[in-house]
Amino acid sequence: MRETTDPAAMTTVMAELEETMICESGIEEHQIWGIGLVLPTLHADTYEVEMNMLEWDLWRGFNVSEKLVTLLDLPA
């Protein structure tokens, strides 16, 4: 099981997995428009239900999309 409380480390793992999927898919990089990203909400003020775990406090304010764009050089 991977440590998921550190957003910077976990985002690096996510990028590595994405690179593996791209490589194994046989799709040429110039054919990829970008990557999709779905995360549980961390903003109770925006949604009716807040998914909350103690470890998620480190994820608040961390821009996962921006980090993935930097690591993968693809829009997210």
Rank of each mutant, 00 (worst) to 15 (best):
M1N: 06
R2Q: 05
R2A: 09
E3Y: 10
E3Q: 06
T4R: 09
T4C: 13
D6L: 02
D6K: 09
D6G: 02
P7G: 02
P7K: 05
A9M: 09
A9F: 11
A9S: 12
A9I: 13
A9R: 15
T11W: 04
T11A: 01
T11H: 06
T11K: 01
T11Q: 03
T12N: 15
T12A: 13
T12D: 14
V13K: 09
M14Q: 01
M14H: 01
A15Q: 00
A15C: 00
A15N: 01
A15G: 06
A15I: 03
E16Y: 02
L17Q: 05
E18H: 08
E18A: 05
E19G: 06
E19I: 02
T20P: 01
M21A: 10
M21T: 11
M21E: 13
M21W: 07
I22S: 00
C23K: 15
C23P: 03
C23M: 07
E24H: 07
E24D: 04
E24C: 08
E24T: 04
S25R: 02
G26D: 08
I27R: 05
I27A: 03
I27L: 15
E29V: 07
E29D: 10
E29K: 11
H30A: 11
H30D: 10
Q31P: 00
Q31A: 14
I32G: 04
I32H: 08
W33H: 06
W33V: 05
G34P: 04
G34Y: 05
I35Q: 07
I35Y: 03
I35R: 10
I35K: 01
L37T: 08
L37H: 02
V38W: 08
L39M: 14
L39H: 08
L39N: 12
T41M: 01
L42V: 03
H43Y: 12
A44W: 15
A44G: 10
D45Y: 13
T46V: 07
T46H: 09
T46M: 08
Y47R: 04
Y47S: 15
Y47C: 11
Y47L: 13
Y47F: 12
Y47T: 07
E48P: 07
E48C: 14
E48G: 13
V49N: 11
V49Q: 08
V49P: 00
V49H: 06
V49W: 01
E50L: 14
E50N: 10
E50W: 05
M51D: 08
N52G: 05
N52M: 03
N52E: 07
L54E: 12
E55W: 09
W56Q: 13
W56P: 00
W56I: 07
D57N: 09
L58I: 02
W59S: 11
R60I: 06
G61T: 08
G61D: 08
F62S: 01
F62H: 09
V64F: 11
S65E: 09
S65L: 04
E66C: 15
K67M: 14
L68C: 07
L68H: 00
L68R: 01
V69L: 12
T70G: 12
L71T: 04
L71H: 14
L71W: 10
L72V: 03
D73P: 06
L74H: 03
L74Q: 03
L74I: 00
P75M: 03
P75R: 13
A76D: 09
A76H: 02
